[in-house]
């Protein structure tokens, strides 16, 4: 070993240093571009204190509007989830590259990408123009969103299955639909159920929002109250929405727990 040559304990990581500097420069640049100033921030804090003051205590006197909005949101979420998942099943299958030829997977994948790219609220705007105000548009918008997310997850789940089992069913001379129900579905059923509960959960969150653009649910009342500076009612609605989402998450977890056991039984 040549001892005279200086040995370096840590080779300098120039790329990391450059990245840190670039990050700092970016933050400064973006903040100036978006006109973030300390003064604005301080004024905002002042406003914030007043704002919170007006939100408290929450005002539940108009609970009828609140309950009606929440019920409609729940209905939108349920119907959009059912519709979306039913449509996602074939679309997801068509998008699975290990089972379908290219000319089928490509259109399906583009459709899924299209559905995924737009926030449900943006999709809702388009549907409000086409179908008019109300829950219909909300259901349609969230169905599209469900196809985007559930469809992608279904396709990925199908692409991960073991083809040996499919081959075995195919070898029995089973027709295509039977190959799907015996060779494919048993392998993915548990995960599909899991994805579906996640989708219901996610649709519930968004169904409280699509009302902002007039697509039904509690979002409309929420946005209106915001614009009227009716902040104590806003506070009441926000609390109820959070509670609803919380309950939704708990229910989804419970349902998943019931059926996850089933997938374990399947594997034994």
């Amino acid at each position: 070993m040549n001892v005279t040559a200086p040995r370096v304990a840590f080779p300098p990581n120039w790329r990391a240093r450059a990245a840190w500097i670039a990050l700092v420069l970016y933050i400064v640049y973006a903040c100036s571009l978006l006109d973030f100033t300390w003064a604005r921030f301080m004024v905002g804090l002042d406003n914030g204190a007043r704002f919170i003051g007006r939100m408290l205590p929450p005002n539940f006197t108009r609970w009828e509007i609140l309950v009606k909005g929440l019920t409609e949101s729940i209905e939108i979420a349920i119907l959009a989830s059912v519709l979306g998942i039913l449509l996602s099943l074939p679309i997801g299958l068509f998008a699975a590259r290990n089972l379908m030829p290219l000319w089928v997977t490509w259109p399906s994948r583009i459709l899924i990408a299209l559905c995924r790219s737009f926030h449900p609220v943006i999709v809702a705007i388009v549907f409000v123009k086409a179908l008019g105000f109300g829950a219909m548009s909300g259901i349609a918008a969230l169905t599209v969103a469900s196809i985007g997310f559930a469809g992608k997850l279904f396709a990925e789940a199908i692409e991960e299955i073991s083809l040996k089992q499919v081959e075995a069913v195919r070898a029995t001379g089973a027709p295509f639909m039977n190959v799907i129900t015996y060779g494919v579905l048993p392998q993915v059923f548990g995960r599909f159920l899991g994805f579906s509960t996640y989708q219901l959960d996610s649709n519930l969150r968004n169904s409280t929002m699509v009302g902002i653009v007039g697509a039904g649910g509690i979002g409309g009342a929420l946005f209106a109250a915001f614009q009227r500076f009716d902040y104590d009612f806003v506070c009441a609605m926000l609390l109820s929405i959070i509670l609803l989402i919380f309950a939704g998450e708990v229910v989804a977890n419970k349902v998943r727990a019931i059926f996850v056991e089933r997938t374990r039984v399947d594997e034994e």
């Binding site: 939108i76 829950a135 219909m136």
Partner: peptide, 13 residues
Amino acid sequence: VSIQTVEVIPEFL
């Protein structure tokens, strides 16, 4: 229940 109660206007549909 959702199908029955949710507000759908047939003409719009």
